[in-house]
Nucleic acid binder design. Sequence first.
DNA 1: ACATTGACCTGGGAGC
DNA 2: TGCTCCCAGGTCAATG
Length: 272
Amino acid sequence: MPELPEVETICRGITPFILNKKITKIIINRTDLRWPIPKNLSSYLKKSVISQITRRSKYILLTTTKGTVIIHLGMSGKLLILPKNHTPIKHEHVIFHLDNGYTLSFVDPRRFGTILWTTNDPNEHKLIKPLGLEPFASNFNGSYLQAKAVNRKISIKQFLMNNSNVSGMGNIYTNEALFLAKLNPQTLVTNISAKQWQSLAKQIQVILNQAIEQGGTTLKDYRNSENQQGNFKVFLQVYDRKDLKCYKCNNIIQHFRQNQRSTYFCPQCQKK
DNA sequence: ACATTGACCTGGGAGC
DNA sequence: TGCTCCCAGGTCAATG
Protein backbone atom coordinates (compact mmCIF):
# COMPACT_ATOMS: atom_id res chain seq x y z
CA MET A 1 0.00 0.00 0.00
CA PRO A 2 2.02 2.90 1.22
CA GLU A 3 4.86 4.55 -0.64
CA LEU A 4 6.94 7.47 0.56
CA PRO A 5 4.15 10.11 0.61
CA GLU A 6 1.79 7.85 2.52
CA VAL A 7 4.44 6.85 5.05
CA GLU A 8 5.46 10.49 5.45
CA THR A 9 1.82 11.47 6.04
CA ILE A 10 1.48 8.78 8.68
CA CYS A 11 4.69 9.92 10.40
CA ARG A 12 3.45 13.50 10.55
CA GLY A 13 0.05 12.34 11.76
CA ILE A 14 1.24 10.19 14.64
CA THR A 15 4.00 12.54 15.85
CA PRO A 16 1.87 14.96 17.94
CA PHE A 17 0.21 12.01 19.70
CA ILE A 18 3.29 9.94 20.49
CA LEU A 19 6.30 12.29 20.70
CA ASN A 20 7.72 12.41 24.24
CA LYS A 21 5.06 9.99 25.40
CA LYS A 22 5.83 6.98 27.54
CA ILE A 23 4.97 3.47 26.39
CA THR A 24 3.06 1.95 29.29
CA LYS A 25 2.16 -1.40 27.73
CA ILE A 26 2.44 -3.28 24.44
CA ILE A 27 -0.11 -5.87 23.45
CA ILE A 28 0.90 -8.31 20.72
CA ASN A 29 -1.97 -10.28 19.24
CA ARG A 30 0.09 -12.12 16.65
CA THR A 31 3.74 -12.21 15.72
CA ASP A 32 3.73 -13.95 12.33
CA LEU A 33 4.12 -11.02 9.98
CA ARG A 34 6.68 -10.46 7.19
CA TRP A 35 9.33 -10.83 9.83
CA PRO A 36 8.35 -12.21 13.24
CA ILE A 37 7.59 -9.51 15.77
CA PRO A 38 9.85 -9.98 18.81
CA LYS A 39 7.70 -11.57 21.51
CA ASN A 40 9.47 -9.68 24.27
CA LEU A 41 9.04 -6.26 22.61
CA SER A 42 6.95 -5.25 25.58
CA SER A 43 9.58 -6.07 28.18
CA TYR A 44 12.22 -4.28 26.08
CA LEU A 45 10.22 -1.10 25.62
CA LYS A 46 7.94 -0.81 28.62
CA LYS A 47 8.30 2.58 30.32
CA SER A 48 10.52 3.87 27.51
CA VAL A 49 9.82 7.31 26.06
CA ILE A 50 9.46 7.96 22.34
CA SER A 51 11.95 10.74 21.65
CA GLN A 52 11.87 10.91 17.86
CA ILE A 53 9.75 9.78 14.91
CA THR A 54 11.51 9.57 11.55
CA ARG A 55 10.92 8.09 8.12
CA ARG A 56 13.60 6.27 6.16
CA SER A 57 12.34 5.08 2.77
CA LYS A 58 9.07 3.31 3.59
CA TYR A 59 10.19 2.51 7.13
CA ILE A 60 9.01 4.39 10.21
CA LEU A 61 11.57 4.60 13.00
CA LEU A 62 10.52 5.30 16.57
CA THR A 63 13.54 6.29 18.63
CA THR A 64 13.04 5.52 22.29
CA THR A 65 15.13 5.68 25.43
CA LYS A 66 15.58 1.90 25.22
CA GLY A 67 16.09 1.27 21.51
CA THR A 68 14.57 1.90 18.10
CA VAL A 69 11.32 0.44 16.79
CA ILE A 70 11.43 -0.25 13.03
CA ILE A 71 8.02 -0.39 11.36
CA HIS A 72 7.16 -1.32 7.78
CA LEU A 73 3.56 -1.26 6.57
CA GLY A 74 3.88 -3.74 3.73
CA MET A 75 0.93 -3.55 1.34
CA SER A 76 -1.98 -3.15 3.72
CA GLY A 77 -0.55 -1.88 6.99
CA LYS A 78 -2.01 1.04 8.96
CA LEU A 79 -0.89 2.89 12.07
CA LEU A 80 -3.89 4.30 13.86
CA ILE A 81 -4.13 6.66 16.82
CA LEU A 82 -7.03 5.43 18.91
CA PRO A 83 -8.43 5.99 22.39
CA LYS A 84 -7.13 3.54 24.98
CA ASN A 85 -10.40 1.68 25.39
CA HIS A 86 -11.41 1.43 21.72
CA THR A 87 -13.27 -1.64 20.53
CA PRO A 88 -10.83 -4.11 18.97
CA ILE A 89 -10.27 -3.84 15.24
CA LYS A 90 -9.86 -6.80 12.91
CA HIS A 91 -6.17 -7.50 12.16
CA GLU A 92 -4.98 -5.24 14.98
CA HIS A 93 -1.75 -7.13 15.59
CA VAL A 94 0.19 -4.80 17.90
CA ILE A 95 -1.10 -2.12 20.28
CA PHE A 96 1.25 0.38 21.93
CA HIS A 97 -0.39 1.92 24.99
CA LEU A 98 0.81 5.44 25.80
CA ASP A 99 0.63 7.50 28.97
CA ASN A 100 -1.64 10.11 27.36
CA GLY A 101 -4.66 7.83 27.02
CA TYR A 102 -4.08 6.93 23.37
CA THR A 103 -2.84 3.82 21.65
CA LEU A 104 -0.77 3.47 18.51
CA SER A 105 -2.30 0.46 16.78
CA PHE A 106 -0.71 -1.55 14.00
CA VAL A 107 -3.40 -3.01 11.73
CA ASP A 108 -2.36 -5.13 8.76
CA PRO A 109 -4.73 -7.58 7.04
CA ARG A 110 -2.19 -9.08 4.62
CA ARG A 111 0.60 -9.20 7.18
CA PHE A 112 3.33 -8.15 4.73
CA GLY A 113 4.38 -5.49 7.21
CA THR A 114 6.51 -5.86 10.29
CA ILE A 115 7.61 -4.34 13.57
CA LEU A 116 11.22 -4.88 14.65
CA TRP A 117 13.43 -3.58 17.39
CA THR A 118 17.12 -2.78 17.66
CA THR A 119 19.44 -1.25 20.22
CA ASN A 120 22.06 -0.55 17.58
CA ASP A 121 22.19 2.23 15.00
CA PRO A 122 19.08 1.53 12.88
CA ASN A 123 20.95 2.69 9.78
CA GLU A 124 23.13 -0.40 10.17
CA HIS A 125 20.11 -2.71 10.30
CA LYS A 126 20.11 -5.27 7.49
CA LEU A 127 16.82 -3.95 6.06
CA ILE A 128 17.86 -0.28 6.22
CA LYS A 129 21.50 -0.38 5.25
CA PRO A 130 21.07 -1.32 1.55
CA LEU A 131 18.62 1.54 0.88
CA GLY A 132 19.54 4.18 -1.69
CA LEU A 133 19.42 7.94 -1.18
CA GLU A 134 16.26 9.66 -0.04
CA PRO A 135 14.77 11.60 -2.98
CA PHE A 136 14.95 14.80 -0.93
CA ALA A 137 18.59 14.34 0.07
CA SER A 138 20.81 17.24 -1.01
CA ASN A 139 23.00 14.94 -3.10
CA PHE A 140 20.09 13.24 -4.87
CA ASN A 141 20.22 14.23 -8.53
CA GLY A 142 20.56 12.93 -12.09
CA SER A 143 24.26 12.16 -11.71
CA TYR A 144 23.57 10.01 -8.66
CA LEU A 145 20.95 8.01 -10.55
CA GLN A 146 23.08 7.67 -13.64
CA ALA A 147 26.03 6.41 -11.60
CA LYS A 148 23.76 3.83 -9.92
CA ALA A 149 22.63 2.61 -13.34
CA VAL A 150 26.08 1.98 -14.83
CA ASN A 151 26.33 -1.50 -16.38
CA ARG A 152 22.81 -2.42 -15.32
CA LYS A 153 20.67 -4.30 -17.85
CA ILE A 154 17.22 -3.39 -16.63
CA SER A 155 14.37 -1.06 -17.57
CA ILE A 156 13.99 2.31 -15.92
CA LYS A 157 10.77 1.17 -14.27
CA GLN A 158 12.53 -1.75 -12.64
CA PHE A 159 15.42 0.51 -11.65
CA LEU A 160 13.18 2.98 -9.82
CA MET A 161 11.20 0.24 -8.10
CA ASN A 162 14.38 -1.01 -6.45
CA ASN A 163 14.76 0.89 -3.18
CA SER A 164 18.52 0.39 -3.13
CA ASN A 165 18.64 2.88 -6.02
CA VAL A 166 16.10 5.45 -4.82
CA SER A 167 14.32 4.89 -1.56
CA GLY A 168 10.61 5.37 -1.15
CA MET A 169 9.33 4.94 -4.69
CA GLY A 170 6.65 2.32 -5.30
CA ASN A 171 4.42 1.39 -8.19
CA ILE A 172 2.18 4.46 -8.25
CA TYR A 173 4.83 7.16 -8.07
CA THR A 174 7.23 5.31 -10.37
CA ASN A 175 4.56 5.25 -13.08
CA GLU A 176 3.77 8.91 -12.44
CA ALA A 177 7.39 10.12 -12.35
CA LEU A 178 8.14 8.38 -15.65
CA PHE A 179 5.16 10.08 -17.24
CA LEU A 180 6.27 13.50 -16.00
CA ALA A 181 9.83 12.85 -17.21
CA LYS A 182 8.47 11.63 -20.60
CA LEU A 183 10.30 8.33 -20.28
CA ASN A 184 8.92 5.02 -21.52
CA PRO A 185 8.85 2.49 -18.65
CA GLN A 186 10.64 -0.11 -20.79
CA THR A 187 13.57 2.13 -21.69
CA LEU A 188 16.82 0.48 -20.67
CA VAL A 189 18.77 2.48 -18.11
CA THR A 190 21.84 2.40 -20.34
CA ASN A 191 19.93 4.34 -23.00
CA ILE A 192 19.07 7.31 -20.80
CA SER A 193 20.98 10.56 -21.33
CA ALA A 194 22.41 12.73 -18.56
CA LYS A 195 19.78 15.33 -19.35
CA GLN A 196 16.99 12.76 -19.03
CA TRP A 197 18.39 11.50 -15.71
CA GLN A 198 18.40 15.08 -14.50
CA SER A 199 14.78 15.57 -15.54
CA LEU A 200 13.76 12.29 -13.92
CA ALA A 201 15.41 13.19 -10.60
CA LYS A 202 13.55 16.50 -10.67
CA GLN A 203 10.17 14.91 -11.50
CA ILE A 204 10.56 12.32 -8.75
CA GLN A 205 10.80 15.19 -6.29
CA VAL A 206 7.89 17.02 -7.91
CA ILE A 207 5.51 14.08 -7.78
CA LEU A 208 6.44 13.09 -4.23
CA ASN A 209 6.05 16.66 -2.97
CA GLN A 210 2.65 17.03 -4.59
CA ALA A 211 1.48 13.71 -3.18
CA ILE A 212 2.67 14.60 0.33
CA GLU A 213 0.76 17.89 0.08
CA GLN A 214 -2.40 15.91 -0.65
CA GLY A 215 -1.80 13.40 2.13
CA GLY A 216 -0.94 10.56 -0.26
CA THR A 217 -3.05 8.41 -2.59
CA THR A 218 -5.94 6.20 -1.55
CA LEU A 219 -6.89 3.65 -4.19
CA LYS A 220 -8.74 1.37 -1.80
CA ASP A 221 -7.15 0.64 1.53
CA TYR A 222 -4.75 3.40 2.43
CA ARG A 223 -5.71 5.49 5.45
CA ASN A 224 -3.66 7.93 7.52
CA SER A 225 -3.29 7.73 11.29
CA GLU A 226 -6.77 9.21 11.75
CA ASN A 227 -8.24 6.67 9.35
CA GLN A 228 -8.80 9.27 6.60
CA GLN A 229 -8.12 8.77 2.89
CA GLY A 230 -5.39 10.55 0.93
CA ASN A 231 -6.48 13.00 -1.77
CA PHE A 232 -3.90 12.48 -4.50
CA LYS A 233 -5.81 9.89 -6.56
CA VAL A 234 -7.58 12.58 -8.59
CA PHE A 235 -4.21 14.02 -9.62
CA LEU A 236 -2.80 10.78 -11.00
CA GLN A 237 -1.90 11.15 -14.68
CA VAL A 238 -1.48 7.50 -15.67
CA TYR A 239 -1.75 5.09 -12.73
CA ASP A 240 -5.08 3.25 -12.70
CA ARG A 241 -6.16 5.11 -15.88
CA LYS A 242 -6.13 2.23 -18.37
CA ASP A 243 -8.14 3.02 -21.55
CA LEU A 244 -8.72 6.62 -20.42
CA LYS A 245 -7.49 9.68 -22.29
CA CYS A 246 -4.14 11.23 -21.49
CA TYR A 247 -4.75 14.67 -19.96
CA LYS A 248 -1.87 16.06 -22.04
CA CYS A 249 -2.40 14.63 -25.52
CA ASN A 250 -5.75 12.79 -25.50
CA ASN A 251 -4.18 9.49 -26.54
CA ILE A 252 -5.30 6.38 -24.70
CA ILE A 253 -3.36 5.32 -21.60
CA GLN A 254 -1.94 1.84 -22.03
CA HIS A 255 -1.54 -0.84 -19.39
CA PHE A 256 0.64 -3.93 -19.29
CA ARG A 257 2.38 -6.19 -16.83
CA GLN A 258 6.07 -5.47 -16.38
CA ASN A 259 8.12 -7.63 -14.02
CA GLN A 260 4.92 -8.84 -12.37
CA ARG A 261 3.70 -5.29 -11.65
CA SER A 262 1.11 -3.10 -13.36
CA THR A 263 2.58 -0.45 -15.65
CA TYR A 264 0.58 2.46 -17.06
CA PHE A 265 1.89 4.91 -19.64
CA CYS A 266 0.92 7.21 -22.47
CA PRO A 267 2.37 5.86 -25.75
CA GLN A 268 2.40 9.38 -27.21
CA CYS A 269 3.99 11.27 -24.32
CA GLN A 270 6.36 8.43 -23.39
CA LYS A 271 7.77 7.16 -26.65
CA LYS A 272 10.57 4.62 -26.63
C1' DA B 1 27.29 -9.48 -9.03
C1' DC B 2 23.16 -9.10 -11.32
C1' DA B 3 18.44 -10.41 -13.26
C1' DT B 4 14.27 -13.07 -12.69
C1' DT B 5 10.81 -15.69 -10.25
C1' DG B 6 8.25 -17.41 -6.35
C1' DA B 7 6.53 -16.74 -2.00
C1' DC B 8 4.31 -14.59 1.72
C1' DC B 9 -1.26 -13.08 2.99
C1' DT B 10 -6.30 -11.26 2.99
C1' DG B 11 -10.14 -9.11 0.77
C1' DG B 12 -12.72 -7.22 -2.92
C1' DG B 13 -14.58 -7.26 -7.46
C1' DA B 14 -15.66 -9.47 -11.97
C1' DG B 15 -17.65 -13.17 -14.34
C1' DC B 16 -20.41 -17.23 -14.51
C1' DT C 1 -26.10 -16.23 -3.71
C1' DG C 2 -22.08 -18.46 -4.18
C1' DC C 3 -18.14 -20.18 -6.38
C1' DT C 4 -13.66 -19.35 -8.86
C1' DC C 5 -10.29 -16.48 -10.55
C1' DC C 6 -7.62 -12.38 -10.65
C1' DC C 7 -5.89 -8.32 -8.74
C1' DA C 8 -3.77 -5.11 -5.19
C1' DG C 9 0.42 1.13 -2.68
C1' DG C 10 6.01 -4.47 -1.10
C1' DT C 11 10.23 -6.89 -1.06
C1' DC C 12 13.17 -10.74 0.44
C1' DA C 13 15.23 -15.36 -0.60
C1' DA C 14 16.17 -18.62 -3.81
C1' DT C 15 17.41 -19.64 -8.39
C1' DG C 16 19.62 -19.03 -12.80
